[in-house]
Simulated assay, not measured.
Amino acid sequence: MGLKKINGIFIDIDDTLYSYAECDAAGRKAVFDYLSGKLNIPQKKIATAYNRARKKTHSNLKGLASSHSRFLYIQGCLEELTNLTPITIVMRAEAVFWKSFMDKIHLRPRILEFLRSIKKAGLKTVVITDLTARVQFEKISKLALDRFVDFVVTSEEAGGDKPSAAIFRVALKKCGLKPSQVVMVGDNRKRDVAGARKLGIRTIIINKELGFKKITLSGILAG
């Protein structure tokens, strides 16, 4: 597959560009600390209620961007613990979560070099990601990647999480390219790879430990 055939790179965010688990753990710890101090409830009890709320939200909203909402997780957690909806505390706790999450976020190795090479080659870069648009935009901004990104498509906008083909169709329409003209780069075989392949999009899977140390644009274009 040569240079003339590939005109765009689709790329995932979470666990592709940075370590999601590290950031999520930092956010949860900060929330549990905050709520424990605010409500005088043991952190272990808060964590248990949070995890139950998370599972319930995922079950009720399966396949939707809102299934990842920390706001809903925290709301459900606090309603279980207090038998009320403590509005101000829910709002504050969600802000605490995302501040700690964003404070922890950092790029995996060699990603900047990879994105610079895409820009230099004149290819379009499209971020394709689950979760809500506002949060994912903030991650891109925090990582200072907005200058490299031409388009963003979230599962909130597309109406469903990967591996739904809908999110890839929206991305193709935005950048005006065909499946044969793009490559999807991601970390998750079930979501990133399976979803892209539904439309015949070529895929590249990254190793979370190595990041982009062994992935180059020239290698992708060479096929």
Rank of each mutant, 00 (worst) to 15 (best):
L81H: 05
D150N: 14
G159H: 05
K162E: 04
V135I: 15
V153L: 05
S59V: 01
T129V: 07
I111V: 15
L64Q: 15
T88E: 15
H106K: 15
F151S: 11
G63I: 07
K142F: 00
L78F: 05
L131S: 11
P163L: 06
I74H: 01
R116L: 08
V152T: 14
K104V: 02
I140C: 01
L84T: 15
V153A: 08
V149D: 03
M102Q: 13
K120N: 14
E157M: 08
K162C: 03
S164C: 07
S164V: 02
V90P: 02
L81N: 05
R70K: 13
L123M: 15
K62M: 06
R70V: 05
S69Q: 06
E94M: 04
R134F: 13
T154S: 13
K124P: 01
T132R: 12
D103K: 08
R70H: 12
K142E: 09
K162Y: 08
C77R: 04
K104M: 15
K99H: 10
R92T: 15
K139F: 09
F101M: 04
L61Y: 15
G159A: 05
I74G: 00
F97S: 09
W98M: 07
A158C: 05
K62Q: 12
K162D: 00
G159F: 02
L143E: 06
R147F: 01
D161H: 03
G63C: 09
S164P: 00
V135F: 11
R92D: 10
M102H: 14
P109E: 11
F148W: 12
E156H: 08
Q75T: 12
F137R: 12
